[in-house]
Design a protein around this nucleic acid. Structure first.
Lengths: 246, 246
DNA sequence: GAACCTCACTTCGTATACACCTTGTCAGGT
DNA sequence: ACCTGACAAGGTGTATACGAAGTGAGGTTC
């Protein structure tokens, strides 16, 4: 269903990877669903070989799970997984921000305009959540890249995929959103000042606040371990969104 | 050259992955070398399909690099990469140790016997470096598993492969080795005491000391960025060693 | 009636064939 | 002598065919 072009410009494997990943993130493929090689090959109009490559990449990223001689299924996440991810981010991102403050690599102008742009989106009558998500993701990635630490960027982005499935942004209250956007501006100031401690603190607050918003937004905020997963499908955005929280 | 069995018990892809990985870590495949699918298929006695899967896994782990329509080549590391890895470990492993101190998941008996075993190996006339490496790796992995954080274990082990190429252990002075082994015992004590701050400090010292030993052991310890990489082949151990420092 | 066995089906794992891309080389022209 | 274009070779990217393993349904036996 809904195949558009048999093969994109180039790279059937790349195409298959992006498409299946999008389907997982938008909730079209729910946790536990089987990802049959033959079915996907038919639906996407390619052969099984690039499908296998795509599934291997998704498995390596933790979005899917490989069961030997059985097949690949979409990974199921619990709120405990979300806790794991945010606890990791609350270590790695502040540390990266501190490094970015003294590396001299921060593109302050670009970061500032991203923060302003997010303000503009949020101030609209009907805020464009997908656009804010995209901008936010670019902001966070740019900060980490400024840390001058390639592996850090890869590690964090590998772990940031999962929250996307939870549609984190929809859990934000207007108040929490305002505070989150203010954090961005404060972080740019801290980076401009070259103050690693300040930058680290701001990012730490930023991530912890996001974590809190998501926990509170969940139905069962009490028991922090076994919530199955809601997997809100929401509107499947054609834009490949890839941003965590705001 | 040196193919033993065409296909192991089961899994040609698994076999190919392990074999190529071993060749990279032991230095048989130097940084920059091409990993031709056809050649590897012939050498290992399997077809190109499982070879491709193995190369994709190695690429995902960062041991190899994929160049579109060109092929896969062994990744080249500089001392800057080593700095990246140890700086990451000096964040993640202490943090994991602190969590392990209060999680109640630490297998203290097993950890203690591993530390004792390493002492025994080191006290021998001719210390078995490979065995110490193996024990040390098991020790570190067990500590991280005790943190109750699955992704942490995966992230660290994904990043720990690279130092193996550098044969880190050979850079240790007898004094540094003694201190490192003492750290293990102290860490077990800290975990037993359930003191997260103590555990974190010990592990931090442990990793930083290892880092220092390796830097000092390198020929050019001055410029911290562009050392090509020595890639000491040393004795190719049949044991699949997988331990970082001591 | 329940447990076990058999058989067919589904799906993965592997091998192989072919097409396209990239690159190095050589002839021809400037 | 140098640059430019076409041609050939090597290699990856993709498609397809075949074999193996696991699963579930249905029948048989105790």
């Amino acid at each position: 269903m809904a195949e558009q072009i048999p093969v994109e410009g180039r790279g059937a494997a790349e195409y298959a990877y992006g498409e299946v990943r999008r389907q997982i993130i938008t909730g079209q493929r729910a946790g536990g669903d089987w990802l049959r090689e033959g079915d996907l090959a038919t639906e996407l109009g390619v052969s099984r070989t690039p499908i296998r490559e795509a599934l291997q990449r998704l498995t390596a990223e933790g979005l899917a799970r490989h069961e030997p001689n059985r097949g690949v299924r979409v990974e199921s996440w619990t709120s405990a997984d979300l806790d794991e991810i945010f606890s990791l981010r609350s270590i790695l991102e502040p540390w990266g921000s501190a490094r970015a403050a003294t590396s001299g690599l921060a593109e302050l102008g670009r970061l500032d305009s991203l923060a302003v742009e997010m303000d503009r989106c949020a101030a609209q009558e009907r805020p464009d959540i997908d656009e804010i998500t995209r901008l936010n993701n670019e902001f966070h990635q740019l900060v980490l890249e400024a840390a001058g630490h390639v592996r850090l960027v890869h590690l964090v982005s590998a772990v940031v995929d999962v929250p996307l499935v939870w549609r984190t942004f929809s859990h934000y209250s207007p108040e929490a959103l305002r505070r989150s956007l203010a954090h961005h501006h404060e972080l740019v100031d801290a980076l401009r000042a070259g103050d690693p401690g300040w930058a680290e603190s701001v990012m730490h607050s930023h991530v912890r606040a996001a974590w809190s918003s998501i926990r509170d937004g969940q139905p069962s905020g009490g028991e922090p371990g076994e919530t199955p997963l809601p997997a809100t499908p929401s509107t499947p955005s054609p834009e490949r969104s890839a941003g965590p929280e705001c």
